[in-house]
Simulated assay, not measured.
Amino acid sequence: MKLSYMASLAALFIALPAAAQPSTRPMGPGPMPVFADFDGNGDGRITEQEFIDARSKRIAERASEGRAMRGLSQALDFKEIDTHGDGGLSREEFDANQMRHFQNRPMPPAR
Rank of each mutant, 00 (worst) to 15 (best):
T24H: 11
V34G: 07
G85C: 06
S56M: 11
A11H: 09
G85A: 06
T83F: 00
R67W: 00
S56F: 04
A36Q: 11
E93W: 01
S8K: 13
I14Q: 03
T83R: 08
M99A: 13
D95R: 03
D39P: 02
S90L: 01
L3D: 12
P109F: 06
R105F: 13
K2N: 06
A19M: 11
F94G: 00
P22D: 06
G85M: 07
G40C: 05
F94N: 02
R100D: 06
S8H: 14
A36V: 11
N97I: 04
M6L: 15
A68W: 03
A7D: 06
F78C: 05
I52S: 10
G87N: 13
G66V: 04
M6G: 04
A11C: 12
A96K: 12
E92K: 15
F51P: 00
S4D: 11
P26G: 08
S23D: 14
I81W: 01
I46Q: 01
R111W: 08
D37F: 03
D95N: 10
Q103W: 01
G30A: 13
K79D: 10
S90N: 01
P109I: 14
G85K: 07
S23Q: 12
R25F: 08
R91I: 01
G40D: 09
V34A: 09
L89T: 03
I14M: 05
A15F: 02
A75I: 06
H84W: 05
I52V: 13
A68C: 04
L16N: 10
F102R: 15
L16V: 15
G30Y: 04
N104Q: 13
F102C: 13
Q49E: 14
A18N: 11
M99N: 10
A75Q: 09
P109R: 15
P22N: 03
M1H: 12
A110H: 15
L76R: 08
L9M: 10
T83P: 01
I59N: 03
I46C: 02
Q21C: 07
I14A: 11
A18T: 14
M6A: 15
A60S: 09
G44Y: 05
G85D: 07
G85S: 06
G66W: 04
G87Q: 14
Y5T: 10
S56G: 10
K2F: 08
R58Y: 04
D95I: 02
G40N: 07
Q21V: 08
G88N: 08
L89W: 01
A15I: 05
G30V: 07
A18G: 09
Y5D: 11
A10H: 08
S23G: 09
A68G: 07
L3A: 12
G88F: 05
P33R: 02
E50R: 06
L76A: 15
A19R: 14
L12T: 15
M32Y: 12
K57F: 07
M27S: 06
R55M: 04
A68F: 03
S73M: 12
A110W: 12
